[in-house]
Amino acid sequence: MWKLSNWSYSNQRKLIIFAFSIVPIILLVTFAYLPVVNMVKYSFTDWNGFSKHLDYVGLKNYKTIFTDPEYFAVFKVSLYYFFATFVQMALALYFATILSFNVRFKNFFKGVLFLPSLLNGVAIGFVFLFFFKPDGTFDTVLHALGLGSYIQLWLGNPGIINISLAGASIWRYMGFNFIIFLGAISSISKDIYEASDIDGANRWHQFMHIILPSIKKILQLNLILAVSGAISAFDIPYIMTGGSNGSETFVIQTVDLAFKYSKVGLASAMAVVLLLIVVIVTLIQRLLIKEEKA
């Protein structure tokens, strides 16, 4: 009769590893890799999501994405979120630099800045929906400051709607970058600051010659991730506008094409494009990190 005790320790170890790994691997293949393979296959078809027959159209869907103004316009919308990322990172770095030194109520301000990162994107969308609505919070503040003449339809004017949504995105993600920058800055030895004080350096000199060089890798990483983050914006614009008035993002358009207009083939092609952008961004990130180490 076969007994596990007759096996060597090495074979028992391999069996245990295999037994504990097989279920996660099956789940990973079933819910991650297999859908990606199917998505790539559907991107070369005009499948509507219901029919059993697939008509292959080659690269037609990809050509449509990059040549049809109706679909290519979403890339322009992504630029608002991309530039908003620079504003968000600048603010996060500014506050992280200030709060890395001894200031009054430092812990209180840390909590206030980080709080939005703990909130759900759907909740933030509803908060800013009331914030930007006519006669809402923002309009009330402008009236109180005597700037009532500047009031607009913040979510109804196609010329400024994406700026409003990008502003909400800045408020949501700034706290996350703030904590990352604060942690990186706090890891700098205090002896370096003391030595620079002796040499007569002010805060600006310390920021330019001590802080920035020390967190260079963190800045590079966040800048690279800004590309994929800008093109994958979804929850805030979807909750606040549903993609109307020229605020439709890449992901919103993909979801609408697949589930509202039954263009699963075209939606799959857009998802593949997004996946390729994320992969390219990741490769660039790895190359930059390797160059820094070298």
Rank of each mutant, 00 (worst) to 15 (best):
K60F: 11
V29S: 04
W2Y: 15
N48G: 12
D139N: 12
I211M: 02
F20E: 10
I231D: 06
L15K: 01
T254Q: 12
P35D: 10
M270D: 06
I210H: 05
L266S: 08
K63M: 11
L118E: 01
L113S: 04
K190L: 05
S262Y: 14
Y62I: 13
D197I: 00
Q206R: 15
D235S: 10
L91I: 12
I163D: 02
V37I: 15
F250A: 02
M39Q: 11
G148A: 09
L79Y: 11
Q220T: 14
G148N: 09
I224S: 04
K106Q: 14
D68L: 03
V40A: 14
L34C: 01
R13G: 03
I25N: 01
G136D: 08
L91N: 05
A233Y: 05
F31Y: 15
V29Y: 05
M174S: 10
G183Q: 07
F101I: 01
K63R: 14
N48M: 05
L119T: 08
S232M: 04
L27Q: 06
F176Y: 15
Y33G: 01
I22V: 15
L283W: 08
F72R: 11
G121F: 13
G242V: 09
A267R: 06
S214W: 01
E292R: 06
I284S: 05
V74G: 01
G159H: 10
H143E: 13
L115Q: 00
G121L: 14
P158F: 07
D256L: 05
F178I: 04
I22F: 08
Y173E: 12
S262R: 07
A269E: 11
E248L: 06
N38W: 10
G136A: 06
A84E: 08
V227F: 08
P35E: 10
N202K: 06
G49P: 09
G200R: 03
T140L: 11
